[in-house]
Amino acid sequence: MTYFSTYSLSRSFGGVRAVNDATVEIEQGKISALIGPNGSGKTTFFNLVTGMITADAGKVLFKGSSIGGLKPHQVALRGVGRTFQITRLFREMTVLENMLVPVRRFGVRELLKDAVGGSEAARAMLWLDRVGLTKLQGEPAANLSYGQQKLLELASLMMSEPELVLLDEPAGGVNPVMIQRISGLVRELNSEGTTFFIVEHNMPLVMDLCDHVVVFDAGIPIAKGTPDVIRDDPKVIEAYLGG
């Protein structure tokens, strides 16, 4: 059984096929990458998979059951978490409060329990400690630097204990030092059992971090394989360099 797969997933916007007949598989416990030129439908693919937009056709399977057509929160509760290309945080909430938003299980008792003072907050502090944001717990999220925001977004996502994490350009717009921190964290989390699927433009990072790469061009998966195979694939070179 494939861990996560899409089958013939398609979506057009006003006649433009943003994602076209995409069949993609990824394996449990690995770090996979989704690459492709700008506008090749990578973010749309993530949006389709997580239920942010609805597909025109196709299937999404996660651990043997269909998650296509579910609402975003249902996808999240099944264990598929995501971050956004341009970091999205609750800017008026404090760093700690941001950590307390994600929902692990849905239930009356879960929702009514004290988030600010209870075990949730303790769990949040562990994560903040891990990403080095402990001192900023009381700051509004809007006051963080962009790199810190990326870290917070990932840490808060981990509060919902996702099994599969989709990262949309985790290294976009941050400096090399911060990229190292983020990729180190991804590697750590992966060794602890989290599966990753990453959209990224930073090729050295992709080649270094990922076990498996899927290449999109014009909404269609054109190649897949290990970084070494992809690097030498003429179709990939054509897609990036050609017209």
């Binding site: 997580t50 942010m52 929160h73 978490g81 999205r88 609750f90 800017r91 938003v101 849905f106």
Partner: peptide, 12 residues
């Protein structure tokens, strides 16, 4: 703050 983001974090 951000309805879509909240939904992506499992908030119904």
């Amino acid at each position: 703050g951000d309805e879509d983001k909240a939904a992506a974090l499992g908030v119904n």
